[in-house]
Amino acid sequence: MRQIERLAEMPEAGPAIEAVGIEKRFGHIRALDGASLAVRSGEVLALIGDNGAGKSTLTKIICGALAPDGGELRFWGRPTAVASIRHAQDLGVETVYQDLALAPDLSVAENMFLGREPLMRRLGGLVPALDRRAMRARAAEALAGVGISLGSVDRTVRELSGGQRQAIAVARAVMWARSAILMDEPTAALGTRQTAIVYDTIRSAADRGLAVVVISHDIPKMLSLADRIAILRQGRTVAQERAADLTLAQVVTLMLGGNGREEAA
């Protein structure tokens, strides 16, 4: 981990995350067929594409939830086969999944620490136990850090609204991320005000030096929020440009088809 943090401070080592020519098939479906993206530390990359374009699949490959059938992943320029979600987490990469991946019967605090719970020792160090007090305190702190005011982190996720759940998934990713955050439609269940808070969170995460990939259908907002835009069409990256160099019309054309590449260039 320490080594990774040092790497993250060396921009000349290459983008924090780079996906090159990724391929993924589900049976006969070619979900990804030459998908690429690159995002540097301190940068927000918006990944845009129509439904079924392969955005979620690409995210899951980068975070180790799915294995690619072809192509290469690089972290700080170094080719890396991400073997598992744990592996990606060890690289400092956190994910907000489109389906949130929260366990409804566990508490907010348990969900935020699941898989990485702090332990303490009881009976003179003989018996391990979950350090629930630390979990509660740090979960509440992380939620407050992304602008979520909070009654109790002991409530189960089942009791919460869709928006509250999404906020927890975002706070969890922000809490653990050391080098990059992947957010798959993190504002889909949120109202206007809450959406604004998440966008602020994304910007400040990038300002703290994290690489952020955000998937969203709000193209105008992405054009102003993101540093760069990657556009995926039918599993293939059809453009990767600086946001400042693109117009809404160009993005829509690229996303939906036509001779978009020339228009964007």
């Binding site: 939830a65 598992s84 979600i85 987490q89 929260l102 566990l106 969900n111 898989g115 990485r116």
Partner: peptide, 28 residues
């Protein structure tokens, strides 16, 4: 009782029962 309430083994058991997908995404 202790294992279910106070250990990772217990928490992971409940997590798997609550949402296997969420447990897997948490690296379990």
């Amino acid at each position: 009782l202790y294992v279910l309430r106070h250990t990772r083994f217990g928490l992971y058991t409940l997590a798997i029962g609550s949402s296997r997908e969420a447990a897997e995404r948490a690296g379990i």
